[in-house]
Design a protein around this nucleic acid. Structure first.
Lengths: 236, 236
DNA sequence: CGGATTCTGTCTGCTGGACGACAAAGCTTT
DNA sequence: AAAGCTTTGTCGTCCAGCAGACAGAATCCG
């Protein structure tokens, strides 16, 4: 919402927070700032990858869209995070699409500029390598979860991941501070909206979680047992 | 089989082939060479990541193993390719396991040595970034395929990917030059052995493919329509 | 060579979850 | 506050694919 004059504080796993002050400023000087509103498509599968993006405020989603129309939501991108990175170094076409979930402030850096920026700064290259590495690890884990668990299990893991980014501890429960629709959840774990709705209410009946004023609360105990394997970084 | 004195010619997407001669030699000087035989576990989920590996000869598989015992086979690693890379830069624990599929020659480089090697050489860092980027892209596409297609579709895509690495054109067919078991295929696309067996014979009956002397032949026409979205790089 | 192991092929019953169809809340817009 | 859209909740129906169980084929190995 607010139009800051610098990037907002970024979340864990963010790109900007790992740059030194100097690099940070230099990167900002390469970037064009732009306000976009909810629903705007930032880029789309098949397009040439001309820019890399930093989200200053708002939220964006990164997803695959299959020819048949089935959507796979890979991740949400938070302020301070970079996206559209994986297609930049090989002039590839976009493999994924990106869309703003809310009104957002977007910084974009042209491909060539970004490449130079990275190549002339070994520490930045290291940050990029770290970021891509953890995306590779996370994607592998997500795939694993997808094939090894039934829908209830996948929902619990998804909630675990989400809670680790958006969760707020409240007594013996953790509150999920973002509104995510059942459809979005379904798209993140490869199932249908109906199945998400009914599985959530089963879990509620089982006492694993609760809905109060449009938010999901999950029993902390449930999360403790689970390792968060994917979740600290946005995926592109 | 043969114990070469340097790395074998590597496949497309290989790591070694992208290094300049000097870097290549320097890397070899950091590496310990070792023969391992079929079935050897190279590393395992949960272990600390102490080395990065280059395969000189043979074949290795990279896979996730879930607590429940379900295996997800991410990719085969061919001569000249690097693996175990994604856990190296953040001192992470192994997220995946690696095992030799055949008797192989393995080069291993200690984590610290490899890091220095990369950090002092921007062009090498660039190669690493490229490699990780394409792994991110490939994994995303694989996940997408997994959720968007039924087993027959997933098998066709898997064959497409395999053919692009191991395929040999023969008239109007392409021969798959590696022996992969139905169980391995099942583990690559998240299904069961029985379903692979029966789906393959359905596809055969439909004229899409053929088995002759223990090899799979697929009609080229089928591959032409399909874009190879994942397949040029090994995944870790 | 012969036994052991690993792979392939096929059938069967069972079930998780996809999909369509509505109805009832909730928001948002004017 | 009325109209309109989006999201949630709940039912059936139906079927792809999982899981168990064998039998035969191929391969490995002492």
């Amino acid at each position: 919402m607010a139009t800051n004059n610098s990037l907002a504080v970024d979340s864990a796993g963010g790109f900007v927070s790992r740059l030194c002050e100097r690099d940070h400023q230099d990167l900002l000087s390469l970037a064009a700032r732009r306000q976009i509103h909810k629903g705007t498509l930032i880029f789309q599968t098949g397009e040439p990858a001309t820019h890399v993006y930093l989200l200053a405020t708002g939220r964006a989603k990164i997803f695959h869209l299959s020819p048949s129309g089935k959507e796979l939501l890979l991740w949400f991108c938070l302020p301070g995070e970079i996206f559209g990175l994986s297609e930049i170094f090989q002039g590839a076409q976009r493999q994924v699409s990106a869309q703003a979930c809310e009104n957002s402030t977007l910084l974009s850096v042209a491909r060539g500029d970004f490449r130079n920026f990275v190549e002339q700064r070994p520490p930045v290259a290291h940050v990029v390598i770290d970021l891509l590495s953890s995306r590779v690890r996370d994607l592998g884990s997500m795939m694993q979860e997808l094939v090894a668990n039934d829908v209830a299990g996948r929902i619990l893991m998804l909630l675990t991941r989400l809670m680790s980014r958006y969760g707020r501890q409240m007594g013996d429960e953790i509150c999920l501070d973002v509104h995510i629709t059942h459809q979005e959840m379904a798209d993140m774990i490869g199932t249908t909206r109906q199945t998400v709705t009914s599985t959530l209410s089963t879990l509620k009946r089982a006492g694993a979680l609760n809905f109060r004023n449009r938010r999901i609360y999950i029993m902390s105990a449930l999360l403790q047992g689970r390792t968060v394997r994917a979740g600290t970084t946005p995926l592109t």
